[in-house]
């Protein structure tokens, strides 16, 4: 197995980012325009024009902030999984020509999604500051939460990527699962409206723990559920371990198959 190469990862991340906006007049500015437009929709359209209110809070923009706090991390999480799932097939031309370590493709996707996430969060913070939102100490936990969420996304993505080489349906199945997962996680609706049975099931939904942590930090100025986060950390690492063991076991076959 070839070792991870930092300069290679940075190079393909740069190229990935440049390719996304290649040929457009505004170029990389689109990376800022998109989050601004999305946040405008969440906060102004949903919060102010449609008048959606968050139960238990008096703030007018609370629902918009609640939406943004859930959708920004979810977008990074789901994009990482779906892009990782097809990484080996999509980067076939690189894998077959350059002797590169396959996990570096996962890391470059993570890095690329992290840039988008960072820009979105930056725009979100600027909007919150303009609205006079108070920033609390709990925000210090955001990098750790993000790190955990991306590790989980990478472990699931690696597992799907290995399977996708042999069974091409995995890419489509991943898309379907992510769509169902989105609606099974309280991102656009509030956790409290769920019936009791579903609420109990939510304890087994890792995305719910992550998204709720963000919502607690941004909207309710509260601490994330630490106990659940510790459990999720252990589960994530076990998943990452098994995904990697499976990948190592099949690496030669993956290269032959491609």
């Amino acid at each position: 197995m070839s070792t991870l190469n930092a300069s290679f990862i940075i190079e393909i991340t740069k190229r990935d980012f440049a390719e996304r906006f290649a040929g457009s007049v505004l170029g990389s500015l689109w990376a800022i325009i998109w989050p601004v437009v999305n946040l405008f929709i969440y906060i102004v359209i949903f919060g102010k024009i449609m008048g959606a209110r968050l139960p238990g809070t008096s703030e007018i923009n609370a629902y918009g902030i609640y939406l943004a706090a859930g959708l920004i991390p979810w977008t990074a999480f789901s994009s990482t999984i779906s892009r990782c799932a097809s990484a080996f097939i999509d980067k076939k031309h690189i894998i077959t020509k350059v002797n590169t370590s396959l996990p570096s493709l996962m890391i470059h996707i993570n890095l690329s999604e992290s840039i988008t996430y960072f820009i979105s969060m930056l725009v979100f913070f600027v909007i919150l500051a303009f609205q006079g939102h108070e920033f609390h100490r709990e925000l210090m936990l955001l990098p750790f939460l993000y790190y955990l969420q991306q590790l989980l996304a990478m472990s699931l993505g690696l597992f799907a990527a290995v399977l996708n080489v042999f069974i091409r349906d995995v890419r489509e199945i991943t898309g379907v699962i992510l769509q169902l997962w989105f609606w099974f996680t309280p991102i656009v609706y509030v956790f409290d409206i769920l019936p009791g049975v579903v609420r109990r099931l939510m304890a087994y939904n890792p995305a719910c723990i992550i998204i709720q942590s963000y919502q607690r930090i941004f909207v309710f100025d509260d601490y994330p559920p630490f106990h659940a986060l510790i459990q999720l950390t252990v589960i994530t690492h076990v998943l990452l371990f098994f995904s990697f063991v499976l990948f190592r076991h099949l690496e030669k076959d993956i290269r032959d198959f491609l």
Binding site: F144, L151, Y223, L229, I230, T233, V234, H237, F244
Partner: peptide, 28 residues
């Protein structure tokens, strides 16, 4: 050595993240 490096990194990651979420509320 590179053979066990990745597994040690995983262990270190686990201790790091679990430590943050375990000790932070206690310190708070």
């Amino acid at each position: 050595a590179s053979g066990v490096r990745l597994y040690l990194l995983l262990m270190l990651n686990l201790i790091f993240l679990a430590g943050v979420f375990y000790f932070y509320p206690a310190i708070k």
